[in-house]
Write a protein that binds this DNA or RNA. Structure first.
Length: 470
RNA sequence: GUGGCCAUGGUGAAACGGUUAUCACAGCGGGUUGUGGUCCCGCUAUUACGGGUUCAAUUCCCGUUGGCCACCCCA
């Protein structure tokens, strides 16, 4: 998509003679959103709305409440929480300094802010666990690609103050349920990365294994070996993939507690029937993860692509302490909403659009005034009504009524105003009847209740009551 | 951040050095301000931006911006 190139300078008057000559106005590069950021246009909103509604519905059903944290946080929150060595912190943060030398960052993810909020608001004193969900934009300065934006949107759930394996399983289940119920088939890939200690031991084993094969590693992978050996497991280099088969696996290095925890998570997952597969090479990029980690992948041909990951989550028992709170176990997940929406479109899933039952058409100035009042009556009565009062030709209005799928049109013209009547037209049959204008709303209500007994073809997306920031 | 490919209207495409840039869809207007889903007519692009080569550039070259793909990594 590209904005139109209409020349904006056409109407710009040249400087008057005598005035110092202004350099010829360069045709400006048409305004674009910043790289990797985009507009979500009205046409796409139904997809987003479908996801938002489902996500909050599921979260609510599982006992979660909404939380909103600022979009900007102190930079140290992410440096400490996500980890200095991670790519996010090293090169992807939108950081800036205010005049007061405050160092701030546009949030790159939602977990650290949520935990920060838990700590700074003393939520330890609330009934535990605290279960919250959030939805909103996140920012990472990466090279944009399909399914990867600099501003992207996450729906996330966090359970803070609970170390039970059943929580981990339920969180994975929630991801699955949300996606499944809007029509996306997916699989959960799951692994355990244990405690920081057991992971450190494993890391050592992994390093010594790959060190013995160092000669065969690419420069990139050599670098990983030094900096972040776990990442070697994601390498796509065929020779590394081959070596992986013989490499030590993290499961064998888990401490007893983590191992038992993981077994229970899997048992619970078995119980729910969520399709999952063990992925011994799944290691998440953020430092705060402990024990369970999982990612949810859309089923399909591109399954292997990293961008096919629609959601990711896991347990992060160490985060609270890192952020200066008392040790508090926690787990959560985030769903990449942009990716889910794009998947919905790929699958040809049709979102439900707001429907209209009645269209109010008018003719002439008197008709318009009366129609304006009738429309208000309908709206107050809770009837889904539409209009196009700014259009004059009745034909254009009827076209719109038709496009909107209105079941009835109310037509009010000069004649009806004089008679105190209104025409009710059945848009399916084309038959019309005349009603007293004072009873027309009542009449429509009556028709609607009869209509409801017939099979409803189109389901309706109710507009959200409150404004969303996403 | 590294490398590669690409850029024509709101959308999807065609033209690939030479007269008014073609087609479809969408949009808007009209077919006597009283009636929609069909039909007919009309309107809607200084070919992303800037520069260069040429008698001539949408077509070739360079830069910029943006998109896509791979890497990196993640949602």
């Amino acid at each position: 998509m590209r904005p139109s190139q209409k020349s904006p300078s056409k109407s710009a008057k040249k400087a008057e003679g005598g005035a110092p000559s202004v350099p010829a106005k360069k045709a400006p590069q048409p305004s674009m959103p910043p790289r990797g950021m985009r507009d979500v246009l009205p046409n796409d909103q139904p997809y987003w709305e479908m996801l938002r509604i489902k996500a909050r519905e599921v979260a609510t059903a599982y006992g979660f409440e909404r939380i909103d944290t600022p979009i900007v946080e102190e930079t140290t929150l992410f440096v400490r929480g996500i980890g200095k060595m991670t790519d996010i912190v090293e090169k992807e943060m939108y950081s800036f300094e205010t005049s007061g030398t405050e160092k701030l960052t546009l949030r790159p993810e939602g977990t650290a802010p949520t935990m920060r909020s838990y700590i700074s608001n003393g939520m330890v004193n609330m009934p535990q666990p605290v279960k919250v969900w959030y939805m909103g934009p996140m920012f990472r300065h990466e090279r944009p690609q399909h399914g990867r934006y600099r501003q992207f949107h996450t729906f996330g759930c966090e359970v803070i103050g609970d170390d039970d394996a059943v929580t981990d399983a339920q969180l994975a289940l929630m991801c699955y349920v949300i996606l499944k119920e809007i029509g996306i088939e997916c699989t959960v890939r799951i692994n355990s990365i244990g405690t920081p200690e057991s992971r450190a031991n494993y890391k050592n084993a992994l390093v010594s294994y790959f060190r013995s094969k160092r000669a065969k590693l690419s420069d990139d992978d050599k670098r990983r070996l030094l900096r972040n050996p776990l990442r070697l497991l994601d390498s796509k280099d065929p020779s590394v993939v081959e070596m992986k088969a013989e490499a030590p696996q993290i499961v064998d290095w888990l401490d007893e507690d983590s191992k038992a925890h993981f077994m229970r998570v899997l048992e619970y997952l078995d119980e729910t029937g969520v399709p999952y597969q063990l992925d011994p090479y799944l290691v998440r990029g953020l430092d705060y993860y402990t024990k369970t980690v999982f990612e949810v992948f859309a089923s399909g041909e591109n399954e292997e692509l990293a961008q096919a990951a629609l959601a990711g989550g896991g347990r992060y028992d160490g985060l609270a302490e890192i952020l200066g709170g008392r040790p508090t176990p926690a787990a959560g997940f985030g769903i990449g909403m942009d990716r889910v929406v794009s998947r919905l479109k790929e699958l040809g899933i049709k979102p439900l659009r707001p429907a209209t039952d009645v269209f109010v058409a008018q003719l002439g100035e008197q008709g318009r005034k009366r129609a304006l009042a009738v429309f208000e009556e309908l709206r107050i009565a809770g009837i889904r009504a539409s209009e196009a009062f700014s259009k004059n030709p009745i034909k254009a209005q009827m076209e719109i009524a038709n496009r909107l799928g209105a079941k009835w049109a109310i037509v009010i013209g000069q004649k009806e105003v004089l008679d105190g009547t209104a025409i009710i037209r059945d848009m399916d049959s084309g038959t019309q009847e005349i009603s007293d204008v004072r009873k027309v709303v009542h009449e429509i209500k009556r028709k609607l209740s009869n209509h409801a007994t017939e099979p409803v073809v189109e389901r309706i997306v109710e507009p959200t009551a409150e404004g969303e920031t996403t």
